[in-house]
């Protein structure tokens, strides 16, 4: 339950009143960024550049949602720390897995390489 703080007149919280417009502006910004992402994938640039651009754009969207829509900007820092612990653990796991399985040695062997040699089969 929310706590009751000392008395304050309504006009003392201009931020509370302007939050409506902050949210609307951020939603419009998010829609524009989504449009930019769509355009980005069709640009004739190098793959690494496009992937970096997409990662940056989606990170910006992510941050706007968690800090404004989810109120992390106005809440206690502990909420941010708690969420980022999960986020860092998840990000670290993803990075490690992608590195492990992205290595050359992790490539799956072709089916022919898995078949035993004919000589071995005859002995068996």
């Amino acid at each position: 339950m929310s706590a009751i703080a000392p008395a304050a007149p309504a006009h003392a919280h201009p931020l509370e009143q302007s939050k409506f417009w902050i949210f609307v502006q951020i939603a419009m910004l998010l829609a524009v960024i989504t449009g930019l992402e769509l355009v980005t994938v069709y640009l004739p640039f190098m793959k690494w550049l496009l992937v970096s651009a997409l990662v940056i754009l989606s990170t910006v969207k992510f941050m706007f949602v968690i800090f404004y829509f989810m109120h992390l900007r106005w809440d206690k820092a502990f909420c941010t720390i708690l969420f980022f612990i999960g986020l860092i653990l998840a990000g670290g796991t993803m990075w490690a897995l992608l590195k492990l399985f992205g290595a050359e040695a992790s490539k799956p062997l072709p089916v022919t390489a898995l078949e035993p040699p004919a000589a071995v089969m005859r002995v068996a």
Partner: peptide, 30 residues
């Protein structure tokens, strides 16, 4: 009186327990 939605003096963290629980759940869902 006006409600302060970003501080709960009844908990040691200053964060409402329900909100803290939700943030912990979301961190695990990540």
């Amino acid at each position: 009186a006006t409600l302060n939605h970003h501080h709960d003096p009844t908990t040691s963290t200053g964060i409402a327990n329900k909100k803290l629980l939700m943030w912990a759940f979301l961190a695990s869902d990540c």
